[in-house]
Amino acid sequence: MSENNKEFNWRLFWNTRKELVLGILFFVLSLMILLIGILQQIKPIQNDLKELKDKQAELAKFSEKAEQLKQLAIDPNFSQSSSIDKVLPSHKPLLEILSNLNSVAYSSEVVIKNFSLNPGEIATDTTKVKKTTNNQRYDYLDLDFSVSGPLWKIQNFLTLIEQVTPISTVTNISINRNIDEDKNAQAQADLVLRTFFFTQPIKTTITSPLPVIASADRKIIEDINELIPNTLEQQKDVITGNRGNLFGLQNQTVNDLEKELIDSQQTTQEETVNENSTVNSELMDAILNPKPNNEN
């Protein structure tokens, strides 16, 4: 009986202090929710917010780049890219230099002599093919030649040659004029003309922003527009100039040529055999039927 009295009566406690029990339960529940449902979510929410911020920054970059790309279609500066390509081509401009020299020499009425050039690999399409590791942005072709004519015409030539495309600079000038014997002696100028071409490998990533054309660059575009454009068309075919076949084959195939060669060899051999047989028969006749000697 005394043991039963000592036992805690839960039922009585629940019936009499139900609100206290529920209150404690609610507090415990609240604490659990606070720990599990709220405090543990703070870190993931912080990470989410950071991720969202990063993503929004990334989105802003992409959005700006996409907008810039869209604007390029109506950009008046970018529309001149073909003229920039003529000024600084992405290939070795050998034909263009020769064409320029010819046209400038013709218009300034001077004579070009002692022409020398080392073009290297002519057909290299430098921008697209060359995978250089160095950061060389451009390369050049040096052309050594001499020009003769009156001094003022040479001056005119020097001025004009730097005004044509592709962009060229006269790096060495040596002019001599011997007026001791003839007051109106013509001058001779030894020149080195350096013509530039673009070699920089272009790299881009999807996130890298597009460079902006500064006011100094716009000034360059204006200057470029004042240059005299090269009228040489891009050479893609061998032009014969209606001179027939340059190699003298007259539109014959290799098989035709081979057949013709074999036929001609056979004909030659037959002729040789006929000649030999004729000679042999004549000798035989001469030996067998000697002619009487009229003199004797």
Binding site: F78, S81, D85, L88, R137, I202, P211, I213, I220
Partner: peptide, 12 residues
């Protein structure tokens, strides 16, 4: 466009 801009810088 990148080639264009870089060419302008080289010409400059």
């Amino acid at each position: 466009y990148l080639i264009f801009v870089n060419k302008i810088k080289v010409i400059s």
